[in-house]
Simulated assay, not measured.
Amino acid sequence: MSAALFPATFDTVRLHAQRMDETHLPFIRAMHADARLMATMGGTRDLAASRLYLLRNLAHWTQQGFGMYMLSERDSGVPAGRAGLKRAGDAVEVAYALVPGCWGKGYATEIARALLALGFGQLSVDALAAVALDGNAASCRVLEKCGMRRVSTAGEGAARKRRYEIRRAEWRGAIGANISA
Results as ranks from 00 to 15, higher is better:
residue 136 N to F: 02
residue 2 S to P: 15
residue 99 V to T: 11
residue 37 L to P: 00
residue 150 R to T: 12
residue 178 N to I: 06
residue 53 Y to G: 04
residue 165 E to A: 09
residue 107 Y to I: 02
residue 89 G to M: 02
residue 41 M to D: 07
residue 165 E to R: 15
residue 57 N to H: 09
residue 90 D to R: 00
residue 88 A to Q: 14
residue 51 R to Q: 15
residue 145 K to A: 06
residue 166 I to W: 00
residue 120 F to L: 06
residue 38 M to C: 04
residue 84 G to P: 00
residue 13 V to R: 15
residue 138 A to S: 12
residue 45 R to M: 08
residue 114 A to L: 02
residue 157 G to F: 13
residue 33 A to I: 01
residue 65 G to N: 06
residue 139 S to R: 06
residue 21 D to H: 14
residue 33 A to G: 09
residue 6 F to W: 03
residue 169 A to R: 14
residue 148 M to R: 05
residue 97 A to G: 12
residue 101 G to M: 05
residue 11 D to I: 04
residue 174 A to Y: 00
residue 17 A to N: 03
residue 170 E to V: 02
residue 31 M to L: 15
residue 26 P to C: 11
residue 124 S to N: 04
residue 1 M to K: 11
residue 54 L to A: 08
residue 6 F to Q: 07
residue 91 A to S: 14
residue 133 L to S: 08
residue 32 H to E: 02
residue 73 E to T: 07
residue 64 Q to Y: 01
residue 49 A to D: 13
residue 144 E to D: 03
residue 54 L to E: 00
residue 9 T to C: 09
residue 176 G to F: 07
residue 134 D to F: 01
residue 65 G to I: 02
residue 126 D to L: 09
residue 86 K to P: 04
residue 92 V to P: 00
residue 137 A to L: 07
residue 47 L to R: 14
residue 178 N to H: 14
residue 176 G to D: 06
residue 14 R to M: 07
residue 42 G to E: 05
residue 154 A to D: 15
residue 133 L to G: 11
residue 141 R to I: 06
residue 3 A to H: 11
residue 12 T to N: 05
residue 110 E to K: 11
residue 174 A to T: 03
residue 1 M to R: 08
residue 36 R to L: 14
residue 130 A to Y: 01
residue 167 R to F: 06
residue 25 L to T: 12
residue 180 S to V: 07
residue 134 D to K: 03
residue 146 C to T: 10
residue 76 S to C: 09
residue 168 R to W: 02
residue 40 T to Y: 13
residue 68 M to G: 02
residue 1 M to C: 12
residue 125 V to M: 04
residue 100 P to T: 14
residue 104 G to D: 08
residue 20 M to H: 13
residue 125 V to Q: 03
residue 8 A to E: 15
residue 18 Q to K: 12
residue 91 A to H: 07
residue 109 T to F: 13
residue 38 M to A: 03
residue 105 K to V: 01
residue 123 L to T: 08
residue 118 L to N: 05
residue 94 V to Q: 10
residue 34 D to L: 05
residue 94 V to K: 10
residue 100 P to C: 11
residue 106 G to L: 10
residue 29 R to I: 09
residue 96 Y to W: 11
residue 174 A to M: 08
residue 114 A to C: 02
residue 28 I to S: 00
residue 68 M to C: 09
residue 61 W to K: 03
residue 39 A to S: 15
residue 112 A to R: 03
residue 71 L to R: 01
residue 171 W to A: 04
residue 119 G to V: 02
residue 174 A to F: 03
residue 2 S to D: 15
residue 44 T to G: 13
residue 180 S to P: 07
residue 69 Y to H: 01
residue 143 L to K: 01
residue 84 G to K: 02
residue 105 K to W: 09
residue 96 Y to E: 02
residue 74 R to Y: 01
residue 36 R to Q: 15
residue 82 R to K: 08
residue 141 R to H: 14
residue 142 V to D: 11
residue 55 L to Y: 11
